[in-house]
Amino acid sequence: MGEPIARHLIDAGFRVTGVDIAQAMIDLCRQRFPGQAWFQADMRHLDLGRRFDGLIAWDSFFHLTRDDQRAMFPIFARHVVLGGCLLFTTGPTDGEVIGEVFGDPLFHASLAADEYRQLLDRNGFAVVSHVVEDPDCGFHTVWCARKCRDI
């Protein structure tokens, strides 16, 4: 819905391009933040035809299956400029769980930290920071990586 991350970036003067699979979320972002670029798309098949200084997959990436997560790293690499950053959240440990949001079941999956590191490296990223259940970020497990080489 663009809150709080897109709002923070827009308020700081950045242009934002947002993607969500849910059209209702895109419609809400268009209402809240006209003048920004919002696309309804499945991240697993994303090809925007351009690269960005930063890419954020916050509270989204870990809803994919583990195989789909593995397949996302070349997609991330195609969309980030050399020197750009990738910021994403995962679960704290390797595995799959079914959580709950508003009483509805919600799938979560994560790979082992070593596998994320290997996937990042294989796709031209160097880990800048990885914090498991960061209390300063609502106990999210956060990864930040910089694109250090094109593959």
Results as ranks from 00 to 15, higher is better:
70 R>F: 03
34 P>K: 06
63 H>C: 11
42 D>H: 00
71 A>G: 07
44 R>Q: 15
98 I>D: 12
66 R>Q: 15
56 I>C: 12
23 Q>Y: 01
93 T>P: 00
101 V>A: 11
53 D>F: 00
48 L>Q: 03
16 V>I: 13
46 L>V: 04
81 V>Q: 07
107 F>P: 01
63 H>M: 14
78 R>C: 00
76 F>M: 00
67 D>K: 12
42 D>M: 10
49 G>C: 10
57 A>W: 02
40 Q>K: 13
104 D>Y: 06
74 P>T: 10
31 Q>D: 05
83 G>D: 04
23 Q>V: 03
21 I>M: 06
91 G>N: 06
98 I>F: 08
98 I>K: 13
42 D>R: 15
13 G>S: 09
12 A>K: 04
98 I>W: 06
19 V>I: 14
42 D>C: 13
83 G>H: 01
74 P>L: 03
100 E>G: 02
90 T>A: 11
25 M>G: 10
104 D>P: 01
101 V>H: 14
19 V>D: 08
76 F>S: 04
64 L>C: 12
75 I>S: 10
88 F>L: 09
36 Q>H: 03
29 C>K: 02
54 G>M: 10
29 C>A: 14
63 H>I: 15
18 G>K: 04
86 L>C: 05
30 R>E: 13
60 S>G: 12
25 M>P: 04
54 G>E: 10
38 W>A: 14
45 H>Y: 12
26 I>K: 06
46 L>N: 06
14 F>Y: 15
40 Q>W: 09
69 Q>S: 11
101 V>N: 15
81 V>G: 00
71 A>M: 12
36 Q>P: 01
47 D>C: 09
47 D>H: 13
73 F>W: 08
45 H>T: 14
80 V>R: 02
94 D>E: 15
26 I>S: 05
82 L>D: 05
30 R>W: 04
58 W>S: 14
94 D>W: 06
104 D>N: 14
26 I>D: 10
23 Q>A: 13
75 I>V: 15
20 D>G: 02
16 V>Y: 03
99 G>I: 08
78 R>S: 07
84 G>W: 01
20 D>H: 01
87 L>P: 00
53 D>K: 00
42 D>W: 09
70 R>A: 08
94 D>C: 11
89 T>D: 08
36 Q>Y: 00
88 F>S: 00
78 R>M: 03
90 T>Y: 00
87 L>C: 14
45 H>G: 09
62 F>K: 02
96 E>C: 15
64 L>Q: 01
41 A>V: 01
26 I>C: 08
15 R>D: 12
49 G>A: 07
85 C>V: 03
21 I>A: 11
32 R>K: 15
107 F>L: 11
19 V>Y: 07
44 R>P: 12
68 D>T: 07
11 D>N: 13
31 Q>R: 15
41 A>K: 02
96 E>Q: 15
76 F>Y: 09
65 T>H: 09
33 F>G: 04
50 R>Y: 07
88 F>Q: 08
105 P>Q: 04
63 H>Y: 05
35 G>D: 07
75 I>K: 05
75 I>G: 03
84 G>I: 02
25 M>F: 06
76 F>P: 02
69 Q>L: 04
56 I>H: 14
97 V>P: 00
32 R>H: 10
